[in-house]
Design a binder for these strands. Structure first.
Length: 542
RNA sequence: GCGCCCGUAGCUCAGUGGAUAGAGCGCUGCCCUCCGGAGGCAGAAGUCGCAGGUUCGAAUCCUGCCGGGCGCGCCA
């Protein structure tokens, strides 16, 4: 996005230029530029003077005075006035002319407004969900799905090239027990003690011809294939399209695990002890070394997992993001150790830990255990409250905090869900624009504005102009939940604007209908984009 | 015992160095001659777990402690 399509970035740059001029380019500190908490502190505010003061050997408020005078001179009639406040804040009050031009500039940016700011743009692989292929997607995995997908959408919009991948653990003991459980059901028996007892296991047994007498390896493969197809369909229904399902067995079959272990051995990081092969992860800060190959000759989960990450790295991504469950946090250090051991650049592999989802049903915890078959699936959740509410709900909280999802509340009082509030604002704007008529809207967008801004209009515009920053922060901090807050705030600001400023028929109260229609169009675009980044629909009617 | 995450309003949570800490739900009281009331306005409600430290300035950064969750396998 070019500077001229982000009015706030342009303004910030103007202030930065003035600060540089004032300090003789001496200071290159990054100062704040944000919306102050109260209207009397102006529209935008900077602490630049406070940061420059020490190196300039002057008092902060004096520096702020001089900076303010310079900004006022440079920006001329774009700025109404500047104030020095508190310990040395410089507060900018923008003129109506600036707001009108800012709206026009933001509209001119079109669909790209707020996007494409990533610097540098990277090729990123986001691996998420990756639940064992031994059962349907649960609500815990649903949070991973919503998070990983929303994060991917935001990264893409910010300008990165993103691929979504699901790692399928189709080897090892869990899959063995899965196959044994299917076979038991096929024979009309109970699954083994440590097997899978869910109803779906019986369904699989019926779908697979000859499951009762099939070779367990073959049965496992068939079962996993069917299970993953279910998973894929559920994810699609949830609005999540994986670019790839990567099967663990591929690194077993093409010798990449052995190659990885050899590679580690060349770095002197491998040793044998009690017939097992160990990796010296303690060299990289792990609290103990880890087994790669058991004394029985089988690999632990870690060996193929490292091989998988080598595989991913060799595919040429700039960055790998793994979304892991809270129960995996103990594996961060060993995976990062292996990554570094193999020459991976620290920081290029990000292991994001998702905290748990507590399902609450009428005040009671709902247990989620695939083995016992007591769990709420993502399909169940979607049936209850719909994709939009489910995604919004699961995305509302930061990924590193535990999420309480009250099913009975979400089901019975879904009108209280904030997602409807945001969608309602979008639908209401659509209605206003329908009332104005397509032709009127087109005219309005091409007109010169003359509006004298109501405080509500200024507040709304300020929020809309903050969208690019919001995307940048949500992207950089891997924090999709910020878009739920932003969407809600924007809807709220629109409600105030709607109350105070009649749009269709604005002239009757001395307003500029063109400006107000344009403001509606801009709000609608930003709301639609915010919802899209969350994977939530933006309806024209409700 | 060790490690990771969390501790902010009655509840669920935003807020990763700025000004008098916010939202939703719940609670109290108002508002439909009005472009969509799935709405709006006002109010009550807080020792930002505790104690130190850094800073002009700390919910935010550092240290210690307390409380909760999750992990600590030659399971994945």
């Amino acid at each position: 996005m070019s500077p001229t399509t982000d009015p706030v970035a342009e303004l910030r740059a103007a202030v930065a230029a003035a600060a540089a001029e004032l300090s003789d380019n001496g200071a290159s500190k990054t100062f704040s530029f944000d919306r102050p908490p109260k209207p009397e502190f102006g529209d935008y505010s900077t602490n630049a003077a406070m940061l420059l003061a020490p190196t300039m050997g002057e008092k902060p408020r004096d520096v702020a005075q001089r900076l303010g005078a310079l900004v006022e001179q440079n920006l001329a009639d774009e700025v109404e006035k500047v104030d020095v406040a508190g310990p040395g804040f410089l507060n900018l009050f923008m003129s109506d002319a600036w707001w009108r031009d800012a709206l026009a500039a933001a509209l001119a940016a079109g669909e790209s407004f707020g996007g494409g700011t990533a610097e540098p743009a990277e090729r990123i692989l986001v691996e998420f969900v990756s639940a064992n292929p031994t059962g349907p997607i649960t609500v815990a995995s649903a949070r991973h799905a919503a998070y990983g997908d929303a994060l991917s959408r935001i990264l893409e919009f910010a300008g990165h090239a993103v691929e979504r991948e699901y790692y399928v653990n189709d080897e090892g003991g869990q899959v063995q027990r899965f196959a044994q459980s299917i076979q038991a059901r096929a024979r009309g028996e109970e699954p083994p003690e440590d097997g899978y007892a869910g109803e779906y296991v019986g369904d699989l047994a019926q779908k697979i011809d000859g499951a009762a007498d099939m070779d367990l390896g073959e049965l496992a493969r068939r079962g996993v294939d069917l299970m993953i197809e279910d998973v894929r369909q559920t994810l699609e229904r949830f609005g999540v399209s994986m670019d790839r399902f990567f099967f663990e067995h591929t690194v077993h079959e093409n010798g990449e695990i052995e190659r990885t272990i050899e590679l580690l051995g060349e770095h002197g990081l491998i040793y044998e002890h009690e017939d097992a092969v160990w990796l010296r992860t303690t060299n990289f800060g792990d609290d103990k070394d880890r087994v790669l190959r058991r004394s029985t000759g089988e690999f632990t989960y870690l060996a193929p997992d490292i091989a998988y990450h080598v595989h991913k790295r060799e595919r040429g991504y700039d960055r790998l993001i793994d979304v892991w469950g809270a129960d995996h946090h103990g594996y961060q250090s060993r995976m990062l150790a292996a990554w570094e051991a193999l020459g991976g650049e620290p920081g290029r592999l990000e292991l994001l830990i998702m905290q748990l989802v507590n399902l609450v049903e009428r005040g009671q915890r709902v247990q989620m255990s695939k083995r016992k078959g007591e769990f709420v699936t993502l399909d169940d959740l979607i049936d209850d409250i719909g994709v939009d509410a489910a995604r919004f709900f699961l995305l509302q909280r930061s990924h590193d905090t535990t999420l309480d999802l009250d099913l009975s509340l979400a089901r019975e009082q879904s009108q209280d869900n904030p997602v409807y509030y945001v969608q309602y604002a979008h639908a209401r704007i659509a209605s206003i624009l329908r009332k104005a008529g397509e032709e009127r809207v087109r005219e309005a967008l091409e007109a010169d504005f003359s509006e004298e801004l109501h405080p509500s209009a200024r507040g709304l515009l300020k929020r809309l102009l903050g969208f690019p920053d919001e995307v940048t922060v949500a992207s950089a901090r891997r924090a999709p939940h910020r878009m739920t807050v932003y969407g809600h705030d924007t809807a709220q600001e629109f409600s105030a604007f709607y109350r105070d400023c009649r749009v269709v028929g604005a002239a009757e109260e001395g307003g500029d209908e063109n400006f107000r229609i344009a403001t509606c169009v801009m709000t609608q675009r930003v709301l639609a984009r915010s919802l899209e980044l969350l994977g939530v629909s933006a309806p024209e009617h409700m």
